[in-house]
């Protein structure tokens, strides 16, 4: 086996993992605290990518684009919460699925109307465009490295926010007992709006970072949404720690499976069979993993405490 390739694929897995974590963290918080299945989370990711591409083209600077995209996504998320989402917290999960499915249709058409059916390109700044030497002369694209770094920084910030600030305390309290904290005089509506906005900003950040390496197109949110749902189900719905570990796990398995499965299968069956079967099997791999984990632990690997 080729060790340079292996290292590269591990890095790619890590990069997909942190991207999934950014989406999963918001989604799992929204579910844990508001008890809401938000299928439209992928749409916020898509909007993040489109906004980033547009802002970057306007200002001709990726970093200014980044600074504009995050608050824009946050405001968009909060508006969405106030206009539509607020009304469905108390409804059944089925109603929530229906409403947020409707939002997906709306946002997809909205983007098609505004930006047209053709995907967008995003220009990377000079310093992120090259590649960096890791160790032993192995080079790795600088932008992917930046994604990994940004993801890990956000994970640490999120940990500090949730476990060491007053807002974080309210979020944790909201997750374990909603009625109690509203009875204690906390403005629960405001808290919900803030958490939804935070989730939207994280989804937007993920979209922005995915924009230069994947294509910015309609429907990009839905593919990753399903993968994100797998992540939060594996990690235990409502748990940020679970989301982080599950995101890395899914990221690795997906990436490494895709690149090494043909070789691994080659040991057992003829190369011909391995080459045709491998793509189908590797894209199934994460779902098989989820099925196995849920069959053994229906509550996910790290269910949040006290729920």
């Amino acid at each position: 086996m080729n060790w340079i390739l292996l290292l590269e694929q591990i890095m790619n897995g890590l990069q997909l993992g942190v991207l999934l974590f950014l989406l999963a963290a918001g989604l799992t918080l929204i579910f844990g605290i508001m008890d809401l299945i938000n299928l439209a989370h992928g749409s916020l990711y898509m909007l993040g990518a489109y906004l980033a591409a547009t802002f970057t083209n306007w200002t001709e600077s990726f970093f200014v684009g980044l600074l504009l995209t995050l608050p824009a996504c946050m405001v968009l998320g909060m508006l969405l919460e106030i206009i539509a989402i607020r009304n469905i917290y108390t409804r059944s999960h089925l109603d929530q699925v229906l409403a947020t499915f409707g939002l997906i249709l709306f946002f997809n058409e909205f983007v098609r109307l505004l930006w047209g059916p053709i995907g967008l390109d995003i220009q990377l700044p000079e310093i992120l465009n090259g590649s960096v030497e890791l160790i032993f002369g192995i080079r790795y694209p600088a932008f992917r490295l930046a994604i990994i770094a940004a993801g890990i920084i956000v994970a640490i910030l999120l940990y500090l926010l949730v476990s060491h600030t007053k807002l974080g305390m309210l979020i944790r309290a909201g997750a374990s007992n909603r009625q109690m904290i509203s009875a204690l005089g906390v403005n629960i509506n405001l808290l919900y709006t803030i958490v939804f906005g935070l989730g939207a900003a994280l989804a937007g950040l993920a979209g922005l970072m995915a924009a230069p390496i994947m294509t910015v197109e309609i429907g990009m949110g839905e593919e990753i949404l399903i993968l994100t749902l797998v992540v939060i189900v594996i990690g235990g719905v409502g748990s940020i720690r679970g989301a982080f570990l599950a995101a890395l796990l899914v990221g690795f398995i997906d990436t490494v499976g895709r690149s090494f499965l043909p070789d691994i299968l080659g040991f057992f069956v003829t190369n011909d069979v391995a080459d045709t079967a491998a793509p189908a099997i590797s894209s199934m791999l994460t779902y098989v993993l989820m099925a196995l984990i849920l069959a053994i632990r229906p509550q996910g690997l790290f269910p949040p405490k006290g729920v």
């Binding site: 749902l229 797998v230 189900v233 199934m284 098989v288 099925a291 069959a295």
Partner: peptide, 28 residues
């Protein structure tokens, strides 16, 4: 497998299984 789970887990696991079959068809 799915019916061992409840509520939101059931929704998501049936969704994920569907996606699995979708990929089998795509890869075929």
């Amino acid at each position: 497998i799915s019916l061992r789970t409840r509520g939101v887990y059931f929704i998501m696991i049936t969704l994920a299984f569907a996606q699995m079959f979708y990929f089998i068809a795509v890869g075929n």
